[in-house]
């Protein structure tokens, strides 16, 4: 069985549901404090998938996810780089997403190039204060990019395509909850955004933008599609009874796995396949 390493620290608070998501998707979750990883970076090498959960790591003091990002960048980059080279699917949800962009793991190296040896790629995107300057918890409709290489959103993209015929899939099923104060996606420049667009790294967009994100970005992936970060919380959508208006959905519409669970199943499935040749060749 595949091991999903879930990295926690002081203030992490969505770790239990992320572990449950991996478990329901067929992996064995292993919840580890970041300080243990710093003491023993080899534990990263044992991971088949890696999750960075939501929460308020170190209270989001200074800025959301900043202190955990500094720790990972300064102490764990070599281990994370090797995992990325192995093609280990990684996900950062909410605070985890904020961390991954500040570490430099997202959006990752320029397409077709390898991870730098000594230090991660420089930060080119950020998740800033919501346009309305306060925390917002609500469910939003999302639109996956069917052309994205993202291994996490394959089933959601399939639902999106089917949704052209069956509108209820787009209106009712393809929803995710957001809960954040700093989720407004900002790119360092127009060319950064253009490149993300061109390489279909914007794997997930908001259909109703809750925070003023540029280009409605809800989540982005690295060029290989195996590292994915998003502000919405798919791990809060593992059962149909967690859907915000499930009491009015017809029985048939809420049978089978939720889109939230499908996202994790896709990643566990991807972990079984070989890493993409591009990264290997570039090395």
């Amino acid at each position: 069985m595949h091991t999903a390493l879930v990295v926690r620290t002081a203030g992490t608070n969505c770790d239990a549901e992320l572990c449950r998501a991996f478990e329901l998707a067929g992996a064995r979750p292993s919840l580890v404090h970041v300080d243990r990883l710093v003491e023993e970076p080899s534990r990263v090498a044992d991971a088949d998938l890696i999750g960075f959960p939501g929460g308020f790591s170190y209270g989001d003091d200074v800025a959301s996810g900043r202190i955990l990002a500094v720790k990972l960048r300064e102490r764990l980059y070599p281990a994370l780089r090797d995992a990325a080279r192995r093609g280990v699917p990684m996900i950062g949800v909410c605070n985890g997403f904020q961390v991954l962009v500040q570490v430099g793991l997202l959006p990752g190296p320029a397409p077709g190039t390898d991870w730098p040896e000594d230090a991660p790629p420089r930060q080119t995107v950020a998740l800033a204060h919501n346009a309305q300057a306060r925390f917002v918890d609500r469910w939003v409709r999302v639109a996956p990019d069917p052309a994205s290489p993202c291994v996490w959103t394959r089933s959601m993209a399939e639902l999106w395509r089917t949704g052209e015929r069956d509108r209820s899939l787009r209106d009712d099923a393809l929803v995710l909850p957001v809960a954040h104060g700093e989720g407004r996606f900002v790119a360092a420049s127009e060319s950064v955004l253009a490149s993300l667009r061109a390489h279909h790294q914007i794997a997930l967009r908001y259909a109703d933008n809750p925070n003023g994100s540029a280009d409605d970005v809800a989540g982005i992936c690295d060029p290989t599609g195996r590292i994915f970060g998003l502000m919405p919380h798919p791990e809060r959508y593992l059962d149909w009874t967690l859907h915000p208006w499930w009491t009015r959905l017809p029985e048939a519409a809420r049978s089978g796995p939720t889109p939230g669970l499908l996202l994790f199943r896709d990643a566990v499935e991807a972990a079984r396949t070989a890493p993409p040749p591009l990264a290997a060749a570039a090395r």
Binding site: C14, R134, F135, V136, A179, E235, Y237, L242, P244, R248
Partner: peptide
Amino acid sequence: RQYDHEVRGATAIKPLVGP
């Protein structure tokens, strides 16, 4: 909406309801 009312992923009926 300023409160995270569904962290833990276990809030089956939320404080605001309907489509």
